[in-house]
């Protein structure tokens, strides 16, 4: 039980990394998603390549690239900003794909109605399509955010002081290495499982509402 306090002190950092990484992705995912639907083949290809690369390379490699790769030679980067940048980049790709799913879920007739009403393309996106896409995207985005919270544990490898960081240092200090890690696992489960259940029930309700 002595471990719980120190390990719990890593929770704020885990949440901070999650929230900021997600926020960067939530904004950065929008242009990527729109580019995916561009009329120009080259634009579609570029966005697709960016998305595939960001998702195809493991998160820990992105963190290392930012922290050791860029941080070592070009500029000095602290662990926390490095982790936020890396998670933000990855989130851009995942959220872009989620938005894309939401965009294709919006009925064609909505665009046609916007055109028929004489709205500009920007107005259609911002006022008619966008809000609907956001609503369709909520369940998948929530699931992604939960996954991201678990992925932030990777930031411990570059020394960000989140949950696993403290569990690791407790384990290295005491003769019992097992309990601190189990406490860390429990912390993640307590943080994520209720959220996951909540997201799933919202998803179900939303499906029912959209279907009816």
């Amino acid at each position: 039980m002595d471990y719980v306090g120190p390990i719990a002190s890593g929770i704020p950092m885990s949440l901070l990394l999650t929230v900021l990484g997600f926020a960067i992705g939530a904004v950065g995912g929008i242009p990527l998603a729109l580019m995916r639907r561009s009329r120009l083949r080259s634009v579609r290809f570029i966005s697709r390549s960016i998305i595939e690369l960001l998702r195809g390379i493991p998160p820990i490699v992105w963190i290392f690239l930012v922290y050791f790769g860029i941080g070592n030679g070009l500029i000095k980067v602290e662990p926390v900003p490095a982790a936020i940048v890396a998670f933000g980049l990855i989130s851009c790709a995942y959220l872009a794909e989620i938005y894309r799913g939401g965009l294709s879920a919006v009925h064609r007739g909505q665009w046609e109605a916007g055109v028929a009403l004489g709205l500009s393309h920007g107005d259609q996106l911002a006022r008619i399509i966008g809000p609907q896409v956001m609503r369709y995207s909520i369940p998948a985005a929530a699931t992604y955010a939960i996954g991201l919270l678990k992925d932030t544990s990777i930031a411990f490898t570059i020394g960000a002081q989140e949950i696993l960081f403290f569990a690791d240092s407790q384990a290295k200090q005491s003769s019992d290495a097992l309990t601190p890690y189990l406490v860390a696992a429990a912390a993640y489960i307590i943080l994520t499982v209720p959220c996951a259940w909540f997201a799933r029930s919202v998803d179900r309700r939303l499906r029912v509402r959209i279907a009816s």
Partner: peptide, 23 residues
């Protein structure tokens, strides 16, 4: 299932490699 999905893979790795020897 919930434990396996709730705990990050990285933490599970630490448990198996660094933790289990204590047990």
């Amino acid at each position: 299932v919930e434990i396996g999905r709730g705990a990050p893979a990285l933490v599970v790795l630490q448990v198996f490699y660094f933790g289990l020897p204590s047990a």
